[in-house]
């Protein structure tokens, strides 16, 4: 028995046990409960969480490791237009990401209205808040995840980064739609400020990471 446990531990690190062995099953149980209890409006929140995870996995295959020291694209760095192309590509991705969530929310809200009728102003506000919240979580996450070059650890870090966003989205749903106690206008204003802040942060980070790749001290 001892050897079985040892063998298990050899192939399963502590992060794997905590995140995939405990965190994710619990998260899915909670999600399952929410979907069952309030499937109606809550469904789009759950689906958007899956979309967020899919977007971050997608980012790995597009920009994975772009900020890391080991991934220096020589073609960009030897060109006069290298910085423009590099920063431009990252900011285009930011814009695409925002439109992706905004359009997704609009489609979900539209479908909900067609199927079950117009649910009211609070529902529309929550949809807009969700678009901004998921864009914000996406923006903050990619700024960290783009340092990761190894896909083995990528999902673990990704899960840690999106968890606060998922918890926030659940609270916004409960307080904003279910209990109707949240000031959604104020929440919307805060989200707009945070989303703009995350966009500026991404721009500055992209510029500085490019400059660092030209000036950064290599170990030798």
């Amino acid at each position: 028995m001892k050897n079985y446990i040892k063998t298990y531990n050899v192939f399963h690190g502590i992060l794997d046990k905590l995140i995939f062995g405990f965190g994710i099953p619990v998260a899915f149980i909670v999600l399952f409960a929410i979907m069952n209890l309030k499937f109606d409006v809550g469904a789009f929140m759950v689906l958007t969480i899956f979309m967020l995870l899919a977007e971050l996995i997608r980012d790995y295959f597009l920009f994975g490791g772009i900020y890391s020291r080991s991934r220096k694209c020589g073609a960009l760095r030897c060109s006069y237009y290298g910085e423009k192309v590099y920063v431009g590509a990252i900011m285009q991705e930011q814009l695409r990401s925002f439109l992706h969530y905004a359009i997704l929310m609009a489609v979900f809200a539209g479908m909900r209205t067609v199927i079950n009728g117009y649910p009211g102003k609070r529902f529309v506000l929550v949809c807009m808040i969700y678009a901004l919240l998921f864009y914000l979580v996406n923006a903050i996450s990619v700024n960290i995840l783009r340092y990761v070059t190894n896909f083995n650890i990528y999902p673990s870090i990704m899960t840690l980064l999106v968890t606060p966003g998922i918890i926030a989205s659940v609270f916004i749903y409960i307080l904003g739609i279910d209990k109707k106690t949240m000031n959604l206008e104020l929440c919307m204003a805060v989200m707009i400020v945070l989303a703009i802040g995350a966009t500026i942060l991404t721009y500055r980070h992209a510029k500085s990471s490019y400059k660092k790749s030209l000036y950064g001290r290599d170990n030798r």
Partner: peptide
């Protein structure tokens, strides 16, 4: 025109 070693183009 410069060609270097390492990741001159991103592998993907």
């Amino acid at each position: 025109g410069y060609t270097g070693t390492g990741d001159y183009f991103f592998p993907r």
